[in-house]
C-alpha cells in the first residue's frame, strides 16, 4: 500500500510544491532546477515512445496473428513503420550524402505530409456538413449560433462590401457587424470560459497535489 499509493502521492505533492514555489524565485538556481526538470521530462517522455510503439505494434500483430477482420491491412502499418525506422537508422549510422536520396525524408515528404494535409483539408467539407446539421435543429440556441456564423462568415468575404453598399448604403456595414460580434459577445464568452476553466484547472491541480484526485494512479492493489 505504501509503495503503491502513499509514496507516489508523496512524490506528487513534493515535486508539485517545488514546481509551484520555484516559479516565484528569480534566483539562478531556480532556473537551473527548471531546465533540469524539463530535461528529465523529455527523457522520461522519450522512454514513453517505446511504450507507444509496443502498444500499437502489439495490437496489429494480434490482428494479424488471429486473422481478425481486415488483418491484411495491418501489414501496411509494419511496412510504414519499419520502413521509416530502418531508413532513419541507416541514415544515422551510415549517413546519407547530399547527392543520395534520403528515403526517410522521402517517406516524410511524400507520405506523411500529404496525408496529414489532406486529412486537415477534409475540414472544409465537415464544416459545411456540421453547419447543415445545425440548420436542421430548430430552436433558439441553434438559430443564434447559425445567425452569428453566417454574419461572421459573410463579413470575411469580399462580396459583403458590395452587398453592404447596396442594402445598407454603407460598404462596411456587414464587416462592422461581423467585427462587433467578434469583438464583443465572442470576447465576453472567451473571457467567461477562460476564467471558469482557469479556476477549475487550479482546483483540479490542488486536488491532484493533495492526493484528493488520484484516478490516474490506478488502484491500490
Amino acid at each position: 500500500m505504501f509503495l503503491k499509493r502513499t509514496l507516489p502521492l508523496l512524490i506528487v505533492f513534493t515535486i508539485g510544491s517545488l514546481a509551484f514555489v520555484h516559479d516565484f524565485i528569480p534566483h539562478p538556481l531556480s532556473g537551473e532546477f527548471r531546465s533540469e526538470m524539463a530535461s528529465w521530462m523529455m527523457i522520461i517522455g522519450g522512454f514513453g515512445m517505446f511504450l507507444g510503439v509496443y502498444s500499437l505494434m502489439h495490437m496489429h500483430i494480434t490482428r494479424i496473428r488471429q486473422k481478425m477482420a481486415g488483418w491484411g491491412y495491418s501489414v501496411f502499418v509494419f511496412i510504414g513503420a519499419v520502413g521509416m525506422i530502418a531508413t532513419g537508422v541507416y541514415g544515422d549510422i551510415v549517413g546519407v550524402s547530399k547527392d543520395d536520396i534520403d528515403l526517410f525524408d522521402w517517406g516524410y515528404k511524400y507520405i506523411q505530409v500529404p496525408c496529414g494535409a489532406t486529412i486537415f483539408s477534409i475540414l472544409a467539407f465537415f464544416v459545411a456538413s456540421a453547419a447543415f446539421r445545425t440548420f436542421r435543429a430548430k430552436n433558439m440556441a441553434a438559430g443564434l449560433l447559425l445567425g452569428a456564423a453566417v454574419i461572421v462568415m459573410f463579413g470575411r468575404v469580399p462580396i459583403c462590401e458590395a452587398v453592404g453598399g447596396w442594402v445598407f448604403n454603407d460598404r462596411q456595414a456587414i464587416v462592422n457587424v461581423a467585427n462587433a460580434i467578434m469583438n464583443y459577445p465572442n470576447l465576453a464568452v472567451k473571457r467567461g470560459l477562460l476564467l471558469g476553466i482557469g479556476l477549475a484547472a487550479i482546483a483540479q491541480s490542488v486536488r491532484v497535489l493533495f492526493g484528493v484526485e488520484r484516478t490516474y494512479l490506478g488502484g491500490a492493489d
Binding site: F50, L51, V53
Partner: peptide
C-alpha cells in the same frame, strides 16, 4: 500519446 495510453490501461 504513449504515456496517456499507459495510464488509460492502468485505469
Amino acid at each position: 500519446d504513449p504515456i496517456t495510453t499507459a495510464v488509460s490501461q492502468e485505469i
